[in-house]
Amino acid sequence: MFHLPITSLQAHFGDIDIYLFDQLLKGRIQKGMKLLDAGCSTGRNLPYLLKAGVKVHGVDLSVDAVRQVRELASELAPTLPADNFVTADLEQLPFESDKFEVILCSAVLHFARSEAHFQGMVQELWRVLQPGGMLFCRFGTTIGLAGKLEQLEGRFHRMPHGPVWFLADEALLSELEKQLTATRLEPLKTVLVEQERSMTTWVLRK
Rank of each mutant, 00 (worst) to 15 (best):
Y48N: 05
Y48S: 07
Y48L: 15
L49R: 07
L49C: 12
L49S: 10
L50G: 03
L50W: 03
L50V: 09
L50I: 09
L50N: 00
K51G: 10
K51S: 15
K51C: 12
K51E: 13
K51Y: 04
K51P: 02
A52N: 08
A52I: 05
A52L: 05
A52M: 06
A52W: 01
A52K: 06
G53D: 09
G53S: 10
V54C: 04
V54T: 02
K55Y: 09
V56H: 00
V56M: 15
H57Y: 15
H57Q: 01
H57F: 15
H57W: 14
H57L: 04
H57M: 02
G58C: 06
G58M: 03
G58I: 00
G58Y: 02
G58H: 04
V59P: 01
V59Y: 02
V59E: 04
V59D: 00
D60F: 03
D60R: 00
D60K: 07
D60G: 07
L61R: 13
L61M: 13
L61Q: 12
L61E: 11
L61Y: 05
S62E: 00
S62N: 02
S62Y: 01
S62M: 06
S62R: 05
V63Y: 12
V63Q: 13
V63L: 15
V63E: 15
D64R: 13
D64A: 15
D64G: 07
D64K: 14
A65H: 14
A65P: 00
A65G: 00
V66Q: 03
V66Y: 07
V66N: 03
V66S: 04
V66R: 01
R67W: 02
R67Y: 11
R67M: 11
R67D: 12
Q68D: 14
Q68F: 08
Q68C: 06
Q68V: 09
Q68S: 13
Q68I: 07
V69C: 03
V69Y: 02
V69L: 06
V69H: 03
R70G: 10
R70T: 09
R70C: 10
R70P: 05
R70Y: 11
R70I: 09
E71F: 03
E71Y: 04
E71S: 12
E71W: 01
L72S: 04
L72E: 04
L72G: 04
L72F: 08
L72A: 08
L72K: 15
L72T: 08
A73E: 00
A73D: 07
A73N: 05
A73L: 06
A73V: 08
S74C: 12
S74E: 14
S74D: 13
S74F: 10
S74Q: 14
E75F: 08
L76A: 11
L76V: 10
L76T: 09
L76C: 11
L76R: 08
A77M: 08
A77K: 00
A77Q: 05
A77D: 07
A77W: 00
A77Y: 06
A77N: 07
A77V: 08
A77F: 04
P78R: 10
P78F: 08
T79S: 14
T79W: 10
T79M: 12
T79E: 14
T79R: 13
L80T: 05
L80P: 01
L80S: 01
L80Q: 02
L80R: 03
P81H: 11
P81M: 10
P81E: 12
P81Q: 12
A82I: 03
A82E: 14
A82S: 14
A82P: 06
D83P: 06
N84Y: 10
N84F: 07
N84L: 05
N84M: 04
